[in-house]
């Protein structure tokens, strides 16, 4: 509803005023100005987002009524299941959705931090040093196209139910960050390096004061992409096996016992978590870009 107001109120305002002969010209001109401000503004974006979700929900509701199957519960049923999942321990798992989220988040954070800790220095070295790049590139190129999910059964057997899902996230985040950092280092403008060199910058100065800062926006892009992939990996990895539950296990269990309203509730949670983390990364990326003067 708020979205509809955002879109249609200005139009209504414009329509009424332009059909009122007594209206002052300056008032008539208000609409384009207001629209321009809104178009560029946050509110319009929010409005369209809400409108888009509203349209999706209406289509979903219509489909579930039309198909009339327990496999596609209505948005209302899913909402009820979602609320219940946070308040009541699941009868099959004995945990609430909060517990599942915390279990998944812990894995996600560990896998993500590990990936950053390895991808950033390696990416910087591979981008900065020709020798390291020549040695490392073939390995990266061989492993990069392998979907992280393909590693999951192997990781489960070799590293167990604690590290298996974490390493699946690690792989999912590693390659986007690594590739972007390498690309970032290689994209440093030669004039910048030359300018720093002519001013007497040492190799370490060059690396710390020119190359690394220049790479940060690229790294942020890699992080944003990696975060999205990481959430896909965690669900798949948890479905193979994970200690301590998680949203992936929650979804799989509900599907197995045929409680599809609760299964969709788990999917909504994953979508929300993914959206939140990716949006947070985008925000940081924008701030960093601004700070870097981009």
């Amino acid at each position: 509803m708020p979205a509809i107001c955002f879109i249609f109120l200005p139009i209504k305002y414009y329509y009424v005023r332009t059909h009122d002969e007594g209206v002052a010209v300056n008032k008539l001109n208000k609409f384009p100005k207001m629209l321009t401000r809104m178009r560029d503004g946050f509110l319009l974006n929010i409005g369209f987002a809400v409108l888009s979700i509203a349209i999706f929900l209406v289509i979903w509701y219509g489909l579930s009524i039309f198909l009339d199957t327990a496999y596609l519960p209505t948005p209302v049923e899913v909402w009820d299941a979602l609320v219940d999942s946070f308040n009541t321990p699941d009868p099959s798992l004995g945990v609430t959705m909060w517990d599942s989220i915390m279990a998944s988040l812990k894995r996600f954070v560990i896998g993500f931090v590990l990936a950053l800790a390895i991808a950033v220095p390696i990416g910087l070295i591979m981008g900065f040093s020709k020798f390291a790049g020549m040695i490392g590139k073939p390995i990266v190129e061989v492993f990069r196209p392998i979907p992280p999910i393909a590693w999951v059964p192997f990781l489960f057997v070799v590293t167990g139910m604690i590290w298996g899902p974490i390493l699946a996230i690690f792989i999912g985040v590693l390659f986007p960050v690594l590739s972007n950092v390498i690309f970032g280092v290689k994209s440093v403008e030669p004039q910048l390096i030359d300018a720093a060199r002519t001013q007497g910058a040492s190799k370490s100065d060059l690396f710390a004061k020119v190359v690394f800062p220049y790479t940060i926006p690229y790294m942020m892009t890699g992080i944003r992409i990696g975060l999205g992939i990481g959430w896909m990996c965690i669900v798949a990895a948890e479905m193979i096996g994970a200690r301590g539950g998680g949203v992936g296990i929650y979804i799989l269990t509900q599907a197995n016992i045929g409680r599809y309203d609760y299964m969709f509730a788990g999917m909504v949670v994953i979508a929300a978590l993914g959206l939140l983390t990716v949006e947070a990364a985008s925000y940081v990326e924008r701030r960093v870009s601004k700070w870097m003067g981009a």
């Binding site: 004995g94 945990v95 994970a242 200690r243 301590g244």
Partner: peptide, 18 residues
């Protein structure tokens, strides 16, 4: 109880494995 969650002295934990 699900493995990795809190239990008491009489708890046997389970984990889903194919």
């Amino acid at each position: 109880k699900l493995d990795g969650t809190d239990g008491d002295d009489d708890t046997v934990f389970y984990v889903q494995v194919a």
